[in-house]
Design a protein around this nucleic acid. Structure first.
Lengths: 239, 239
DNA sequence: ACAAAAGTGTTTTTCTTACACCCATGT
DNA sequence: ACATGGGTGTAAGAAAAACACTTTTGT
């Protein structure tokens, strides 16, 4: 009961772990770092690290995100708490409680890894298996959460750059869900949701090199999607 | 990077905090305990406590739940991680990272408080303000999460006893959302969702003392609600 | 007889779906 | 010319909302 008996609690190490997700070449990718020491030396792991004395988990996560991605400004990026993993055996050496985060990025610059990690790279989600600790589980949880939140929040724009086309936004859904969506209907639904996207007046961009230039949009102020954009189990464009 | 430098991390105390919610007399109630010591002596707080050396946060939360509610069997009760609160100043005495949980109960027996809490009681949600620490925030987050999850999960049955009527289930939605729902339409939607509820053959119960006896249902195996039961902002039955 | 709560049916309206078609650009 | 991706229109079907109505109990 918060009794503050000095012997009533055990000291724990507290860390953050990050599932940094992005879309490259129409496939979900995750940022992994190579572990240099035991345990799990040589294995891939999610980036992360210890909380500093005066940091909240959110602050530590954003600091790690900046270090690992090498991006100068990570303030606009979507970062959200996933859950906390606290099973006693999850780290073989000591008791470590880890607050896991999911971070969503538009396709970032390749050379990241400015942090203390020996090596860091983007790995396609489907090839990211056999990670250190319980990171397989954390990564799977992150993917599930993101997939689910696409349905009823405006999260998809977090995978897009500041200005994007509706085609790019649709490809976010299709890539994460592994399904094909009808373009006219997708378009209508997005535009019918107030505050989901806002048109950039007069702007257009060539997307595939070919085709009609697409109008550009910015992420709007809305966060929730009412009504939701439901994942309809139809054939086409499997993951 | 999980480097295990003995000086690379600060030891933290790790606790769990529980937002134990139930419905009594058509109002959302939360279980609060009175604090006996400083800080916040005499104030109400969410129940909680320190993790034991070999416990996960989930295990600790369920142990606290059993202690505080006095229920012999808490295995069937819904318990879910909310998020982790780790702001440096959230406890004035020391660095405490708290993993918050939401627990949902059917209307429980009044005399609980078998734990180490001086006093514990059910408080209507709207009167639970001015709590110790950041518990106001945790409680608000719990309510938001539960309200949102009613839309797209089968969570509502967690507020109901093992066997319940559709009217009782509807009252869960109406109480948590503070809106009125159309009974025929609610009924159809629930019954049209496979695995949401299962009829108890031949069983019926008088509900309000008056009226036709209602058929009884059990919670089904489904966890997700596809399509969701959307919160329609209509007038009537305000919170 | 009446009130209260459960349960059924039906009509209207709204939303979703599927698909046809036109537009602008590069090769 | 045609392939490629963007954008518009529309008719059929499904789902939701609104509401009238019947049933079964207690008083």
């Amino acid at each position: 009961m918060h009794g503050y008996d000095k012997h009533a609690f055990e000291p724990f190490a507290v860390t953050v772990d990050l599932a940094v997700l992005t879309l490259r070449a129409d496939a979900l990718h995750v940022l992994l770092v190579a572990r240099g020491q035991e345990p799990y030396a040589g294995r891939w792991a999610l980036p992360g690290g210890f909380l500093l004395p005066d940091e909240s988990a959110e602050t530590a996560a954003r600091r790690e995100l900046a270090e690992e991605t090498g991006l100068a400004d990570v303030t606009g990026l979507h970062l959200e708490q996933l859950r906390t993993y606290s099973e006693p055996g999850r780290d073989p050496r000591m008791r470590v409680v880890s607050v896991a985060f999911a971070a969503l990025l538009p396709d970032p610059p390749e050379p990241h890894g400015g942090g203390d990690a020996a090596e860091a790279r983007w790995v396609p989600y489907d090839e990211a298996r056999g990670l250190a600790f319980d990171h397989d589980r954390i990564l799977a949880d992150a993917r599930d959460r993101v997939g689910a939140k696409l349905e009823y929040t405006c999260l998809a724009t977090a995978f897009c750059p500041a200005e994007f086309t509706l085609g790019e936004l649709q490809r976010v859904y299709e890539t994460v869900w592994g399904t094909a969506l009808d373009r006219p209907n997708f378009r209508r639904k997005v535009l019918a949701t107030p505050g989901f996207v806002e048109p950039v007046p007069g702007a257009a961009r060539l997307t595939g090199g070919r085709g009609k230039p697409a109008a550009l949009y910015r992420a709007g102020p809305a966060t929730a999607l009412h009504p939701p954009l439901l994942r309809t189990p139809r054939e086409g464009r499997p993951a």
